[in-house]
């Protein structure tokens, strides 16, 4: 099996490191690859990393130049094929339908406010509870960097909340996180994600 990390901009190597750690712990035979584009996609799962969402939107290329809508159509197509997709921070913003009241053809039907907590000096770490199934919550040390705030979730389940707002949302096989598991050493979320394949 093969997992792709979208590698146009952002903290790609951090995701690759954590995926490899999770793969090792699960004793699975999975390759982790960095993707430079979305043509000829042949992975079993996709991660969109943290970074600057405005920059990433501008860098989406196919052979006819850059076009964010083509990328969103591509995401729609692979999610129809039930390929798991995980977006962290900027990745979550690219997955959202409503960002700062602008509408996109995203996969997660929710309203997101970019930099909702403020600027870098308001970035923070905090312990949160993850709820991967109904009977069990697990503690997770979450790192929020100029993080977006999810104002409203229209569709899907909330996997974690902080201060009354959703910070992890899942709709079918698509997961969006406002924080950065790739900046920790805790592979919990990656193992959960890999088990969706």
């Amino acid at each position: 099996m093969k997992i792709g990390v979208f590698a146009l901009q952002g903290d790609v190597s951090e995701h690759v490191r954590m995926l490899n750690n999770a793969v090792k712990e699960l004793e699975k035979n999975i390759n982790v690859v960095e993707l430079r584009g979305f043509e000829n996609f042949n992975c079993d799962a996709l991660i969109i990393p943290g970074g600057e969402s405005t920059t990433m939107r501008k860098l989406m290329h196919d052979e006819n130049g850059n076009d964010i809508n083509k990328f969103l159509n591509f995401l729609g197509k692979i999610s129809d094929e039930e390929i798991p997709i995980l977006g962290t921070c900027a990745g979550l913003i690219l997955l959202a339908k409503n960002v700062d009241n602008k509408f996109y053809d995203g996969l997660l039907d929710m309203e997101v406010k970019r930099n909702g907590y403020g600027r870098q000096r308001e970035s923070f770490e905090a312990d949160v509870c993850l709820k991967f199934n109904l009977n069990k919550t697990e503690k997770f040390h979450a790192i929020f960097i100029r993080a977006p705030v999810i104002e409203k979730v229209h569709k899907g389940e909330i996997l974690a909340e902080f201060e009354g707002k959703a910070i992890a949302v899942k709709d079918k096989n698509v997961i969006g996180l406002t924080f950065h598991p790739e900046l920790t050493n805790d592979t919990k979320i990656y193992k959960y994600f890999l088990n969706l394949i």
């Binding site: 952002g10 903290d11 790609v12 970074g51 970035s123 923070f124 790192i143 960097i145 100029r146």
Partner: peptide, 21 residues
């Protein structure tokens, strides 16, 4: 629970987010 601000993780994390840019 208590939020932590201004840690080395947060500072280095910010730098990670601008990579490739």
């Amino acid at each position: 629970e208590g939020k932590i601000y201004g840690s080395e993780t947060l500072k280095k994390g910010f730098a990670s987010m601008v990579k490739g840019g």
